[in-house]
């Protein structure tokens, strides 16, 4: 099966290990991975800032880039949600693109959803060991219903213990541009999230969205916590972690 990898603009620049780990997971299962080189962003920043016209340009770009695959896999609930739940409405003034948006939405999967519900992967070869707590990022959870999938995957790891935090579904306060425009509020929200994470005493907080990861990691470190790792679930499932991939 031909699987298009949409690595997301944030992971591309900030944390390529997420892309590499995703690539690894797909290849191990025998997928033919296609990486359209011209890919950049799904257009969410423009969409959420009210610039509908620019967002449409990005949507058309992504649709064209992934026109020739069986599936598209995205290691982010937020960007996955954009493609799967917003493109159709965004392009509703063009019947052609609206149909293509539907086509794309039907074959686009958030990574953990793809691993559980399409590939049905039941074992992982990873060097990661330790206790983790899982944060449910908002878009993945409420737009795509990503809740059980990552937990099922983590359950299949031999040396990993999951400790649920209090309020794993509570927003971390990232919200894209919100985190910069309303920095004081955003920072307070993530402070409370960090309290919940630290209360579990887990070795790592794991999630499926890099935006939220950066927010949580930035706050933990500023609070003086250099111990709790902040990891993407793809990194945990492969052991390919953060800066080690340079």
């Amino acid at each position: 099966m031909r699987v298009g990898l949409f690595v997301t603009c944030l992971a591309d620049v900030m944390r390529p290990s997420i892309g590499l780990a995703t690539l690894e997971l797909l290849k191990r299962e025998g997928c033919e991975v296609i990486f359209p080189e011209g890919q950049t962003c799904c257009g969410q920043p423009a969409y959420n800032s009210g610039d509908r016209h620019t967002a449409q340009e990005f949507a058309r770009k992504v649709i064209s880039e992934f026109a020739d695959v069986d599936y598209v896999v995205i290691p982010s609930g937020s960007c996955g949600g954009m493609v799967k739940t917003h493109y159709e409405e965004l392009l509703n003034d063009s019947p052609e693109y609206r149909a293509r948006a539907q086509w794309l939405a039907a074959r686009t999967y958030e990574l953990t959803d793809f691993l559980v519900n399409v590939l049905n992967v039941d074992s992982f070869d990873t060097t990661f060991q330790g206790s983790i707590t899982y944060h449910d990022s908002c878009a993945g959870l409420r737009e795509l219903g990503i809740k059980k999938q990552p937990r099922k995957l983590l359950d299949r790891l031999n040396h990993v213990e999951v400790k649920e935090m209090s309020g794993p579904e509570q927003c971390c306060g990232f919200g894209g541009a919100f985190s910069v425009k309303y920095g004081d509020i955003s920072s307070r929200i993530v402070d409370l999230k960090c309290d919940d994470i630290e209360a579990t005493e887990a070795d790592a907080v794991v999630l499926g969205d890099l935006g939220c990861m950066m927010n949580i990691e930035g706050k933990l470190r500023r609070r003086g916590n250099h111990k709790t790792k902040v990891l993407h679930i793809a990194e945990v499932l492969t052991g390919l972690v953060g800066n080690e991939t340079e």
Partner: peptide, 17 residues
């Protein structure tokens, strides 16, 4: 406003691309 009360994790140096 991000770094007023938070750090920004640095990029790891090379793009995925």
């Amino acid at each position: 406003d991000w770094t007023k009360n938070r750090d920004m994790p640095a990029p790891s140096g090379r793009t995925f691309r």
